[in-house]
Amino acid sequence: MKFSWKPFILTLLVVLIVFPFAYMVLLSMASEWRFPDVLPNYFGLRNWTQIFSSETGLISSFVLSIVISLSVAFTSTLSGFLISRSVSYHPRKRLFTLLTYFPYILAPVVFAACLSYFFLMTGLFGSATGVIVAQFMIAFPYALIFFSSFWNERIRQYEELTATLGGNRRQTFLKVLLPLAKGMLLICFFQTFLISWFEYGLTSIIGVGKVQTLTIKVFLFIKEANFYYGALSCCLLIFPPVLLLYINKRYVFNKLI
């Protein structure tokens, strides 16, 4: 039988991909692990039970991150869907589409620094609302670009057909456009949630340390050289996207393919 390296290479690749995540989970359950010890002095769920203590602030950061990301994902997906229609059907579509790329010309940190004066003047500096607004300014253009492919000639024909069948704009939106765009809406919601969830630069500048999302918390723990809590907060950071990825795969991607 011919010897094949393929299974070994595949196994190696899987191990390389899975190892950092598995190691992170192990690290989140360890403490007092010092060189040259092969195993940690403590291995158990103590760190995880600490999540609920107010001292670490992890649970409050987790809830705050969820609230911020859901708000950003919901508002940017919905407004992106509605406004992309106007942009796509506008005679100056190309100009408006070009403008939507503007926030991505600058790095988020530079973009936030440029806008910080306006946030200060409007009293949004250092507040969760300010962070939501700042992250929206990044997620919204993404949603606009994402939905621009949806508004094509066929969708316009669906709209016109519904109008001649007696439908008003609200009925067209609720009974035709939303069901037709369901898959894209869910994917966009997922993507904008991720943009917000992992956002660091904008959040750290506009939040000025007062708005401690989970991503900010991870960096704080790492700066403090607290690897165990850093690994723990990374696990928490990964959990919602994994859940959303599962929902998307189970209910959206499979139906789209």
Partner: peptide, 20 residues
């Protein structure tokens, strides 16, 4: 009179059945 109130239905070359 708006399209929805004319009671005039426009059919395209494509059947445009609602896929959902």
């Amino acid at each position: 009179v708006k399209p929805g109130k004319r009671n005039v239905v426009y059919l395209y070359q494509e059947d445009l059945l609602f896929p959902h």
